[in-house]
Nucleic acid binder design. Structure first.
Lengths: 148, 148
DNA sequence: ATCACTTGAATAGCAAGCTATTCAAGTGAT
DNA sequence: ATCACTTGAATAGCTTGCTATTCAAGTGAT
């Protein structure tokens, strides 16, 4: 029952993700951003004023995690949350000017990080790599419809 | 300045790692194990009685993280820590019987999780996938010798 | 022998995840 | 109108990770 951690997809996936996160953390720190805000920001840069529910649906992130992330984002002046007038349960999320202005540099930082990490890969390898990861991710959703 | 998150290696790496972690968490929960203990356990199953320092050197994990993980492992009866007689600063880490006995089922769980996640990949794709991730990881170390 | 430096480990404090639970607002059936 | 159910969001409590700092034990030079 041998187990080589550097041959285990899951182990390697975790390790690689930490490396990416570490690099991106450093790159966006000067912007006053942290990695956890990225998914929400990407959605909001595209469509401002989404509800928390909609953000959760668009991203594979739990509701509680999103609530916490949004709370930090509000604290840090990236978003404002306001109650929907029609439905008092709904919170709409709006970007602040500051957050809107960070789009360019933040995306640039992410692209730089990706570029550095994949510097050793040929263009073909990069494409394969992305495709293979996407396949792992897609393998999930249909199988585990659970997700409560 | 478009940015498609499902084309971003870093974004995908994070997402994939969470999927693997989620699956493994469920599989090893019945064993009373959590994912964070896995790296240390693998090293100790191979070589019992390592020091914390040695564990940190063998794994790309920060000293503080390891200290916390070991504290949880001790609390949960997976390890015992004892002071080295030669050097009072050194803590040697020894597996308990319980932890030793978990090796088989834990490794089986990890292998099952890997298998399920890669079920959509051909053998060739699996090999490529592992190789491509390894390359990303290796791209790191030489570049950032800092790590302190 | 003492004092500065080094080194191994622990602690403080935070981010980003998760599960499970609670709270508040709406909705529907009686 | 009321009471049960649903639904959106918040909270509690935990793990895993990080950086920065502190503490304690050894080591070396004077």
């Amino acid at each position: 029952m041998a187990f080589a951690k550097d041959q285990s997809a899951g182990y390697l996936a975790n390790h690689m993700a930490r490396i990416f996160a570490h690099g991106l953390t450093a790159r966006i720190k000067p912007l006053g951003l942290t990695t956890g805000t990225f998914p929400a920001l990407l959605e909001l840069w595209d469509t401002d004023g989404l509800t928390q529910k909609q953000l959760v649906e668009r991203l594979d992130i739990e509701q509680a995690t999103m609530a916490n992330t949004l709370a930090r984002m509000e604290r840090d002046g990236l978003i404002v949350r306001e109650k929907d007038t029609n439905d008092g349960r709904v919170q709409r999320v709006w970007l602040t000017d500051r957050a809107r202005n960070l789009r360019g540099p933040a995306i640039a930082a992410a692209q730089e990080e990706n570029a550095v990490r994949l510097a050793g890969h040929t263009d073909d390898e990069k494409r394969q790599f992305i495709a293979l990861i996407q396949k792992v991710i897609k393998t999930k959703t249909p199988e585990e419809p659970g997700d409560t």
